[in-house]
Design a protein around this nucleic acid. Structure first.
Lengths: 342, 342
DNA sequence: TTCACCAGTCAAAACGTTAAGGTTGATATT
DNA sequence: AATATCAACCTTAACGTTTTGACTGGTGAA
């Protein structure tokens, strides 16, 4: 492995000069810099990251916690999110450290990663309404970016989509088609995004004077099986749902199966709008009928989260690093007018 | 951040003694070791990873390449695989470095990670029949574990499932029900796993004297839309398929939709067996009808891959680190007898 | 008594880089 | 002519570990 010393010997200059030449300092002659760069290129020099990390005290690495039991939404979403982070980081020479954790040792894992100087910043997801991780990170002063939001007085950097609007827009679109019984297949109640979506959903209802019926909401992790079960429940109520809002493509698939199993046709007997985080292996436009969705790219969110982390480390104030993305609605074929109720 | 020096001062011993006590050397008095451990615990000492890495020359980190354009099967699978790696690594204090790459710079990224001393070993997936990455890693002498297999004379550590058997068992199960026209929804032809599955499929056919019909195989990335399109093609041949083998749950979903769209019933008009890598958000047993599958856990594979990497670094010979897992068949409701052909 | 040995400890060097401050010799300023 | 300034380079010290080899004082053997 070729190191600074080798380059220095080769070029008859000091190690310092080589280092400063490569790092773009102004007190090195342009001719020398050119010679150094050429030699570095020729010999395939790459700085030893660990030496650099030790002396600078910066790990040049961003951490991301990853649950070992893939329980929550995480599952497929995280792959896309990760790719987005990867895109952003590879442009800026930062590394990504995955921090695996199980059940309840997440904060313990954070401590370990922080104390051993492995990371400069952290990206945290799967955010709860009241999330102890946020308090902890604040307390120890580790820079962090939240994917989502939480209830706290403390300032923090985040990237989130407007989940209130997801619930609101979806509900409004269905209400305008005459639907009055709209089932909400939502995420776990303790998660902020699920709370926000319900808030939007309820606002749409109340603006139109329609009472909220708790029997028409389901809180569970977003999985195929839950979408199926909850939809079956919604469709067999005394006053069954005529429309559904699905929290993700995963439970939308289950919902579609439940609709079919009941002998109903989506877009005719039952309408549906799903939220799509964009998986490449499951496209709403290729469903039959094509699924109307609210859309936001998980990958883009990962990309942005990483960018925010880097800007944070570059000293940009937290206030500039709080972003909420509007979601767009893609109207397709799964929404139709409410059927006449007997 | 508390360091060795702090502990040494606190305990009135040398830095060396603290280090050796903590690292379990035999030449330190048990009483001293106890005092040191207690103090380390009390003050929350964690070794600075970067200093340790620098002096030992080992990064204590395993790398995993991650495509930025999530094109191939990778997508959802990688999340499970990652979790498995995470499980294994967290038990052994190793870190996991994600190495993002796009299109064709994968080997370039490897070089960078290796030369800068970021990783001790690499796990590589999405393996091609002839894979330049394997040759490269051999050449530079970086320890690596392959998830899958490739055609090469060189020895290497791997974890793979018996894909030939996946193709064979699935085909046999369908042939025994009288099916003679079996569509194979396979992965890209240049990938080893897809080649192996086709090999098994063809062996089953030829053992029964049934000619292989290329019109009944489809090679494409495993996505919903491809499953749909290929199934439509298979079902509209002059002599249509009466059964399908789907390479993953992703294109199985598309296939199911195509079957329904054609007004056919799975398990009755068309039988199907899919390979299931086990996603928690998509369960074959909760499909209607429940899907018969061959099963292998992507998560378990990730776990094992990481274990192999660690054993490799511990000096275990490559020959001991080559594992092929048998897959099991889960019979459910999507396979029925071949319908009478007009 | 002398020597060898051993358990337990330590000082010093090394890992490869960055950063602080000093040293040149040449040019500009007075 | 003396002094200040400056570009360009260098020496040295750090970063926090691990590791090597040396040093103790005590014990047992000769």
């Amino acid at each position: 492995m070729v190191k600074l010393k080798d380059l220095a010997r080769e070029l008859n200059v000091s190690i310092t000069t080589v280092s400063r030449a490569l790092n773009g300092f102004s007190d090195v002659n342009e001719a020398t810099r050119a010679r150094v760069s050429a030699a570095a290129e020729r010999l395939g020099y790459r700085p030893n990251m660990n030496a650099r990390r030790l002396v600078t005290g910066r790990a040049h690495t961003i951490g991301l916690a990853n649950p070992s039991e893939s329980s929550l939404i995480h599952e497929a979403h995280i792959a896309e999110f990760l790719s987005g982070i990867g895109e952003a980081l590879s442009e800026s020479e930062y590394d990504l450290l995955l921090i695996p954790f199980k059940q309840d040792d997440e904060i313990e894992r954070y401590k370990r990663a922080i104390a051993s100087n492995r990371i400069d910043a952290l990206i945290v997801g799967s955010i709860l309404l009241h999330d102890p991780r946020i308090d902890f990170l604040h307390k120890v002063g580790m820079p962090f970016v939240v994917h989502g939001r939480t209830e706290t007085e403390l300032p923090y950097a985040f990237i989130d989509i407007d989940n209130e609007s997801v619930g609101y827009k979806s509900a409004v679109a269905l209400l305008e088609k005459g639907h009055r019984r709209i089932g909400l297949l939502n995420g776990p109640a303790e998660m902020t995004f699920a709370r926000d979506r319900e808030l939007g959903y309820r606002r749409a209802l109340s603006e139109r004077g329609i009472p909220f019926d708790p029997a028409l909401t389901d809180n569970a992790m977003m999985a195929d099986a839950h979408g199926f079960a909850a939809t079956q429940r919604f469709l067999t109520l005394k006053k069954p749902a005529t429309a559904l809002i699905a929290g993700s493509m995963a439970n939308a698939i289950g919902a579609i199966r439940a609709i079919r199993t009941a002998g109903l046709i989506m877009g005719r007997h039952v309408s549906m709008i799903a939220h799509d985080d964009i998986f490449h292996f499951l496209k709403p436009e290729s469903m039959v009928p094509a699924l109307t969705t609210t859309t936001s790219s998980m990958r883009a969110a990962g990309h942005r989260a990483a960018e925010i982390a880097i800007r944070l480390l570059d000293g940009e104030p937290v206030e500039n690093l709080q972003q909420v993305w509007e979601v767009e609605m893609n109207e397709r074929e799964s929404v139709g007018p409410a059927p006449d109720q007997g």
